[in-house]
């Protein structure tokens, strides 16, 4: 099929138009995506004095920009988990009466090993390791 001048110009203009559109849409879309902030990766945080931490209680700790729930269970053992509910991102709490970790948003319940036992959470909470060095509580990532 011979290409006449009109068709050639049409094709050229369409291609140019499409390119122009992409040149507008791509930067606009990229602008909307927030840049990755350069955050130093945190591998461990100090979380206070072990002997001053009452048994059967909890505290939310800032682990970099993530919340971590630190619990001292009744035998004085410390446990730490990501405090972000695996269901829809709410912050969980430790219930001293039922001795469970619960999420008030949709009644998700985890046991003291972070396992999802009831309600909508699909996965267990990520666990952090806790060490006590010279009476100071230190939380580290499992790998860290």
């Amino acid at each position: 099929m011979p290409i006449n001048r009109r068709k050639f110009i049409d094709a050229l203009l369409s291609l140019g138009g499409l390119g122009g559109l992409v040149a507008i849409v791509y930067p606009a879309f990229s602008f909307l995506k927030p840049p990755k902030s350069a955050e130093g990766t945190v591998n461990s945080v100090k979380a206070g004095i072990a002997s001053e931490f009452p048994a059967n209680s909890s505290k939310i700790i800032k682990f970099g920009r993530k919340p971590v729930i630190l619990i001292k269970i009744e035998n004085n053992e410390f446990r730490a988990f990501s405090a972000t509910c695996t269901h829809l991102d709410c912050i969980v709490q430790y219930r001293t009466d039922t001795k469970q970790i619960t999420c008030a948003c949709h009644n998700g319940i985890y046991d003291l090993k972070g396992r999802n036992v009831s309600g909508p959470p699909p996965r267990p909470l990520d666990e952090y390791s806790v060490k006590v060095v010279q009476d100071e509580i230190i939380i580290t990532t499992e790998t860290g």
């Binding site: 919340p67 729930i69 269901h87 709410c90 912050i91 969980v92 709490q93 949709h106 959470p121 699909p122």
Partner: peptide, 29 residues
């Protein structure tokens, strides 16, 4: 405060409730 547990009674505005409630009844998988 992003570092406090979610309080009891978290709920959206009433006009989202029917969707919110339905999602609660659907099993996780």
């Amino acid at each position: 405060d992003p570092f406090t547990p979610a309080p009891q009674g978290i709920k959206p505005e009433w006009y989202f409730m029917f969707m919110f409630q339905t999602l609660k009844y659907i099993p996780s998988h």
